[in-house]
Each structure stands twice: as structure tokens, then as C-alpha cells.
Amino acid sequence: MPDFPDDSELVFQFKNGSQKEMAFTSIIKKYQEKLYGLIRRMLISHDDTNDVLQNVFIKVWNNLDSFREESQLYTWLYKIATNESFNFLEKRKKNRYYSLVDHETDLINKIKADDSFDGNKIEWKLQLAIQKLPEKQKIVFNLRYYEEMPYDVMSKVLETSAGALKASYHHAIKKIETFLTSE
């Protein structure tokens, strides 16, 4: 991965009109894969992930001028990405067509449709088990297990206390374990 300027430098360049577009391109390139992975774990489908990811960066373009630098850029980006993913899922659940199909079943079917899916492998069973979790527990598990995000950062992203996040992560793991052992 190429070296990018640090976040505060990118924000400064963005707010300085002449380098705005260049700074924005750097922000996209720096965070696109991380945010893609985060959103994709929530939505499973690439097309849905693509829509949400593009919306995330458009929001960044529209709002970065008013971004307050006391919070870190990547925390802010993760916050937008999780909010956009939740909003997308909520809209999907309210959609007339998708409300007929069980949301959980829909995501499981999408996982099984993946070219590399192997139902006998524990890592794929884990993917199926994660879909049984409530949305909030799912995002907590993903941020901790896959992104290895510290609780204090996660607390800023999800606007939830670190204690509540620890408890949520604990419950999520226990539910997944129960699912895996019952299979």
C-alpha cells in the first residue's frame, strides 16, 4: 500500500481549497479497502456495499469542511460507514419485496452464493453464525474480531460506553459458540 500523508495533514489539505480534490482522492485510497471490508461484513453483497461505500465518501466530501479535528478522521469515517450501513439495512427491511424474505435468510443465502464458500470449514460456519446476531452485536463483533478495534475507539464510533461494548462482545461470542457447537 502506498504511503499517504497522516490524517491531520489530509484534512488540512482538504480544507485548503487548492488541494481539496487531491486530498480527497488520498482519503479515498487510504480508507476504501478498510471501509469496504467493514461494510461488506454487514451487507454481504458487493453491490450493496458499493452503493453504501460511495455514499460514505460523498458524505465525506460534503461534510469534511465542517469536520472538527479534535476527533480522528478514521474514527469519523468508521462512524459514517456504520451509520450508513445501519440505515441501508433499515431501509432494506422496510422494502416491500425484502420484507417478504427473512433478512437473515437473505444474508445467509448470499454467503452461500460466494464462490469460495465451503460449508464444512469452520471459518465459513462462523460467517453463518454471525448472521444470527442482532445488528448492533454484529457490528461490535466485526469491529473487535476482524478490525481489532480498541473499545475506547469503538465507543466513539458507535457512541456507546466501553463497558456496554465489552458486554455486547461477550454475548456475541457466546451466541456464536452456541451456534457452532450445535451444528
Binding site: E33, G37, I44, T49, E123, Y146
Partner: peptide
Amino acid sequence: IEVKINYSA
């Protein structure tokens, strides 16, 4: 669980 699935774009 040793392998962590990463969905590819």
C-alpha cells in the same frame, strides 16, 4: 479459528 474470511471485491 485460524482463517479470517475477507470478502473480496
